[in-house]
């Protein structure tokens, strides 16, 4: 399979603290990769480096075989790698649909128009389609601050997907979402990414979610990858059980697995 993302000996140091140590990761096109690890293990640091938010201390990042090291987040986004955030990054004074319309305009051109209205009929219609696809059409005209956390997460992910990325990085897509909502949210997201044919890498603390949706797991501990493989194998790994998940029984993979 073709590799879409590759990191070579990726390191990040914050003074004496080593947040990422020799991270060598290869993600193939079409994979759904889960990243697990306790707080401070380096998961978000990894995503932040790959998406240009943090500059690695050492190492190389290749996207579709080309180096993206030192590129700005916007250049990386334009290259086809989008992300969502642990805390949904939205425009709080705008309605849900206006958030999507801004994302649509951004996807169309990096140079927004000076005089043509942003809220064109075509963009409104497309935004309505996206809202329906994500099942949040009821919140269309609500301010994003007034909608539930799960819906905010979906808006955040929908905005990331609008630019038709080849790869999507999700930072804890279910954090802050109730247990009841998690499966619904992830089903919606995974349906959308499958439709778009997007490669996905997501950070997750909920092992049930990981087992259900990913084809491969990377387990982080103290800035290093301590296990990489199929979910069942990684979650059964003694080091992972000791250092990441705790001694928990492994569950059978659900029918939502891809």
């Amino acid at each position: 399979m073709t590799t879409i993302l590759e990191t070579r000996s990726l390191n990040k140091e914050f003074g004496a603290v080593i947040a990422a140590k020799d991270l060598n990761v290869q993600v193939a096109k079409g994979e759904v990769v889960g990243v697990i690890g306790s707080n401070g293990a380096g998961k978000t640091t990894f995503i932040n480096m790959v998406t240009g938010y943090l500059k690695p201390t050492r190492g190389e990042i290749l996207f579709n075989g080309k180096s993206i090291l030192g590129h700005s987040p916007r250049a990386i986004t334009r290259a086809g790698m989008a992300r969502s955030f642990q805390v949904a990054q939205l425009f709080p004074d705008m309605s849900v649909i206006d958030n999507l319309i801004v994302a649509l305009a951004a996807a169309e051109s990096p140079r927004p128009s000076f005089l043509s209205p942003l809220r064109s009929d075509a963009r409104i219609a497309r935004a309505e389609e996206i809202l329906a696809e994500f099942g949040i059409e009821n919140y269309q005209n609500s301010k994003v601050t007034a909608v539930p956390q799960g819906a905010r997460k979906l808006v955040d992910i929908a905005m990331a997907l609008i630019g038709n990325p080849q790869m999507l990085l999700l930072d804890e897509p279910t954090s802050g979402v109730s247990m009841d909502e998690k499966t619904g949210l992830m089903d919606t997201v995974m349906n959308a990414v499958r439709q778009h044919g997007v490669t996905v890498l997501f950070v997750e603390h909920d092992m049930d979610v990981v087992e259900r949706y990913v084809s491969r797991v990377l387990a982080f501990y103290s800035g290093e990858i301590i296990a990489d493989g199929k979910p069942a194998a990684v979650l059964a790994d003694n080091r992972v059980r000791d250092l990441v998940t705790g001694h928990r029984p492994t569950h059978k993979k659900g029918n939502g697995a891809s």
């Binding site: 990096p110 000076f114 942003l118």
Partner: peptide
């Protein structure tokens, strides 16, 4: 017209969340 146009609205978006604007591929 400017305030309703792409640049006008997205400048307001910059005020609200510059990080998100950057991750939409805009400067």
């Amino acid at each position: 017209r400017y305030t309703k146009a792409g640049i006008g609205v997205i400048c307001e978006a910059v005020r609200e969340n510059e990080v998100r604007v950057e991750y939409l591929g805009l400067s």
